[in-house]
């Protein structure tokens, strides 16, 4: 492993920033999120940012193509994909798993989303091994290992040793970025790693997808629907929610086709031309969201589309809590 004194972190990041943009967790106008690194910036090294890193790969608004609609004529031109490499720093293991979930959707064998795939290709991800569990963290219940970042997305594992960081490259791409600041790093074998704190929230999830497959018409949904405001906060903060809408921005005859984040909690999401609405109310929408995360996605990919980061339970204005839902389902025989 390669050791960096914490006091040298700023030098280390500056050195890397000479080679490519570096993205770090920080506070922007009171909202913690991932943002481009600048010298002497205050980094968020405890806990996770409120806004997940999904926007690095699936931006809130992103142009898909340009067009010009002039009378009967139409021109369509693809957008140029960003080519410059970048480094994304200190991604918690739950959020690393979130990126693995997004990969399943956007880099599926049938249709690869080129814009997403390009951003994944150019981004080296430094995972940060968990150094503190919050009341709302339940990653271990959702198949996330707080000891070891999912290597399907992480390129370097970072260990917090107190006064030092230890870096472990998980692949060649990670090694390459570390070599850019080799002079600040010292090699050390037999690094003693501090224990990962135990999750305070531990849910039983064995057999959960199977159990949920029989709850579609169960009354449990009524316990969760009444409180929901349909505000969509849960979906925007969720590191795995990936639903999007396609819109345009027009200036005269010139237009940009945009992909924008959408939310399954909104009425218009499934409303069809002619007025047919397959998911008529809040109950149907909450049910679809929870079942997508805990049953439907699992049936397709053998992993949950929830990583137990706890953002939705702490930020929901009405305290709707997916972990309580899981506990209730596992406790009750479908009543």
């Amino acid at each position: 492993m390669q050791i960096l004194e914490k006091s040298k972190l700023d030098d280390f990041l500056q050195m890397l920033a000479k080679h490519q943009p570096v993205i770090v967790p920080t506070d922007v106008d009171g909202l913690s999120q991932y943002a481009p690194y600048q010298a002497q910036m205050t980094l968020l090294l405890d806990g996770k940012p409120t806004v997940s890193p999904k926007g690095i790969f699936l931006p809130q608004t992103e142009a898909i193509y340009r067009f010009k609609a002039q009378g009967k004529n139409l021109l369509i031109a693809e957008m140029e994909n960003q080519q410059t490499p970048q480094v994304l720093f200190f991604v918690r293991h739950c959020d690393v798993q979130g990126i693995v979930c997004l990969d399943k959707v956007f880099m599926s064998p049938e249709y690869t989303d080129q814009q997403y795939a390009k951003k994944r290709e150019i981004t080296t991800i430094f995972a940060l091994r968990c150094n503190g569990s919050k009341e709302s963290c339940f990653c271990t219940s959702m198949g996330v290992d707080p000891e070891k970042a999912n290597p399907a997305a992480a390129d370097v594992e970072v260990y917090d040793l107190g006064d030092q960081f230890a870096f472990e490259a998980l692949n060649e791409r990670g090694e390459k970025v570390l070599s850019q600041a080799a002079e600040l790093l010292s090699n050390q074998d037999n690094v003693i790693l501090p224990p990962v704190p135990e999750r305070k929230l531990q849910l039983k999830t064995e057999g959960l997808p199977e159990k949920l497959s029989t709850t579609f018409d169960a009354p449990i949904w009524n316990d969760f629907m009444f409180k929901c405001l349909g505000c969509g906060t849960c979906t925007y903060l969720c590191p795995t929610c990936h639903c999007f809408d396609i819109n345009n921005k027009l200036r005269g005859e010139d237009g940009l086709k945009l992909r924008t984040w959408d939310s399954c909690m909104f009425d218009e999401y499934t409303l069809m031309a002619g007025g047919h609405q397959p998911r008529t109310g809040k109950k149907e929408r909450i049910r679809n969201r929870f079942l997508h995360k805990l049953q439907y996605f699992y049936e397709k990919h053998q992993m949950f589309l929830c990583v137990g980061c706890g953002r939705c339970l702490t930020k929901c204005p009405m305290n709707i809590d997916i972990s309580k839902f899981v506990q209730q389902v596992m406790k009750e025989e479908s009543r």
Binding site: F106, Y111, H242, F244, D245, I246, D262, C264
Partner: peptide
């Protein structure tokens, strides 16, 4: 919206 199993709806 997408036709390719990604937009979700």
């Amino acid at each position: 919206k997408c036709g390719v199993g990604k937009c979700g709806r």
